[in-house]
Amino acid sequence: MKSATAPLDKPQAKRNYVKRLAADVKRDWDLYALLVPGILFLLLFKYAPMYGITIAFKDFNIFDGYDASPWVGWKHFAKLFSSPDFLHVFQNTVILSFLKIGILFPLPILIALLLNELRRMLFKRAIQTVIYLPHFLSWVIVSGLFIDLLSSNGGLVNKAMAMIGLEPISFFLDNSVFRGVLITSAGWKETGWSTIVYLAAFATIDPGLYEAAKIDGAGRMKQLWHITLPGIAPIILLMFILRLGSILEAGTEQILVMYNPTVYKVSDVIGTYVYRMGLGNQDYSFTTAVGVFESVIAFTLVLAGNALSRKYLQRGIW
């Protein structure tokens, strides 16, 4: 592509770096111009407040203001890491996150692939519309639904279990199954919504490829494996690397609504723990320190994920 636009350059001139740069910029000046508004927005709304990160290294008192608050170094990080519950809470976060990535990340891809195999357009569209409905219910409502469904006192699931002779389970109060409840409800709520991005990606696959495969006698499974999946691989990769960026966010909003003291042991994550410890005394410095810790881990993982992907799959986000 570079060579195609190269005629703008003077081949006989000595190609030093600045010149090449100037030439490239000149060639692509309109691309840079397109970038300007986005970067301005980014600088104003995202980078201008970025100094707030340093609150993590101060004893910030919101009423004294930023400048008047003293620097305290790593104090708040030390507090986080030395807190007796930190290890336990960190462990829960990572376990839940891995479960969610392991189970809930592939699920929308699978559903999208299966949806793609539906041949009746009307049915397909109806299903697409219906399965994304739960995304619009807030966690409070979803939690209420699951409490009703899983109640040990007349809930549908326990009734069904009783019919086949199983002991009733208090799903919301039982440490051995509560994580399952969290994963299932998160899957129910978001899977349909998450398929959309893959469904849109199917549209980019050249139908000619399928025709050719059919002529070659490839079955449905073969087409799926050799055409459809590779067709959406880039977007899968993108979504996966970005998903790594929220590894320490195991669903605080969901857990805060759904958990209760009897299952803290398996569901108390960094977000919920910090929330409870901060009740009534907004410790902005500590909260920011926790946020910075999460961000650093997330950023490292995204960088690593991208690097690995470039090395082994020859493509990444950048």
Binding site: N260, P261, T262, Y264, R276, M277, G278, L279, G280, N281
Partner: peptide
């Protein structure tokens, strides 16, 4: 300073 946090801690544990 401690009221909300301690109330939550106690209520949780009592449950």
């Amino acid at each position: 300073k401690n009221k909300q946090k301690l109330t939550k801690l106690l209520d949780d544990t009592v449950l």
